[in-house]
Design a binder for these strands. Structure first.
Lengths: 230, 230
DNA sequence: TGTCATCTGTCATCGCGTGACATAAATTGC
DNA sequence: GCAATTTATGTCACGCGATGACAGATGACA
């Protein structure tokens, strides 16, 4: 790796760290791009050559994590059911947090704290997650042997994402607490879901049950509700 | 209602309609606030007195719907389980779509199409939804007699929101298709969830099982997974 | 060393959003 | 109907985020 690339990398992490620290100390909105650039002693224009937006400073790490998650998911054995594969991938990623460089780990925790305390960034991370939902869905549908429009595939992804978001819900603190929260939610899901719920229905062999019969919506309100009341 | 208020209301809906139409015809990003204001023949500054941002033009209707949803949820009978109350409220709101003024209905459908075809707006709507999650959670927890930090309450809300988002997932088209999709997802949820899953666990009487034992996270990866593999 | 590619700074520009202030309009009281 | 008050609107100025264009500085390579 040449001097040039090393210099670039140093500048990028310098901007990243400066940005995160400024965001945390004086607030995300109150911090201007000019300030970040000045801190690293580069021009504002140069800042935008490293980060496409101010937001990206706060979200590039989570974005990378998502990429890594998708890559890891793709390598889970086919024998695992879709939801199991998702859950185990999540657990593996979580475990990776603990064997991290001290500076990298603290950076990640800072970013977590930052996002958590900034409504605009919470929304942005949500956007990230939703943006990747499509790819997650594709992988789940592939494992189920269905098309991505399959409602059950969507349900599996939605439930998993719901769990993930609920995980972010409170306390970032330390990786251990996060993992604990993750496992608690998992146990709860086990209590709530029927075994095999994430496997494709064996009776319907067709590859496209995506659009359901709209006539079902004409049922009176009180009638269809029993399906979930139990 | 005085002349003044009528005039204001007319200006607001004029800006709203002009904005939606311009967004749809030439794209959201490509449309400037100046254009919208010019279309209604008011100054740019005045536009911002009616809408706090360009985004709000596209999202004020969904925002109002969310408020209405929360109000309707609060009035569901206590006898309904949390998830049932959520589902029936959703169904009732969906039914309301059909008895709407022609111009209001077409506006709503336009907004749906607009959001669906604009990634930035999809994200923004997601932000709206997440922003209201807290209030939804409060109501669910109240019905369960638990605190909002209760994981089961969070699961209930998450599953419901996941269903809602999956509903938005594809085809806006007509209200009937939307309702059909809603009911299909509902039926699928019935297949996947155990009866009574949304009721508070009877054994744990304490009001605060929010934070789980972090020690559980120390289990080897392969062991805890069986809880969902079944 | 000299040539080439690439990174960087400066400048200009656009769009979104806001505060301040003056003007025009509607509302109220007489 | 007219004056006094309230309130909506327009104009101006400004800050911030983001982008394109161009010239100069710096590392890469023969």
């Amino acid at each position: 790796m040449g001097l040039r690339e090393r210099k670039k990398e140093r500048t990028k992490t310098a901007l990243l760290d400066a940005g995160i620290d400024l965001f945390l100390s004086q607030g995300y909105e109150a911090t201007t791009v000019d300030q970040i650039a000045a801190e690293v002693d580069v021009s504002t224009r140069t800042f935008f050559r490293y980060f496409s937006s101010k937001e990206e400073v706060a979200l590039c790490l989570p974005a990378e994590e998502q990429e890594a998650f998708l890559a890891a998911l793709a390598e889970r054995p086919e024998s695992e059911s879709p939801f199991t594969a998702l859950v185990r991938t999540g657990r593996a990623r979580l475990a990776l947090l603990r064997e991290l460089d001290e500076t990298d780990a603290s950076r990640l925790l800072k970013v977590q704290r930052l996002i958590q305390t900034t409504p605009a960034l919470v929304a942005s991370r949500m956007r990230l997650i939703v943006h990747n939902e499509r790819r997650l869905l594709a992988e789940v549908a592939r494992r189920q042997g269905r098309c991505p429009a399959d409602l059950r595939a969507q349900l599996v992804v939605s439930v998993f994402l719901a769990m993930t978001m609920a995980c972010y819900g409170d306390c970032p603190q330390d990786p251990a607490a996060l993992a604990g929260r993750y496992e608690s939610l998992l146990a709860l899901a086990e209590d709530s879901l029927r075994p095999g719920w994430d496997l494709p229905a064996p009776d319907q062999a067709g590859p496209d049950p995506a659009v359901a019969d709209p006539a079902v919506a004409d049922r009176p309100a009180g009638e269809a509700a029993k399906v979930v009341v139990g």
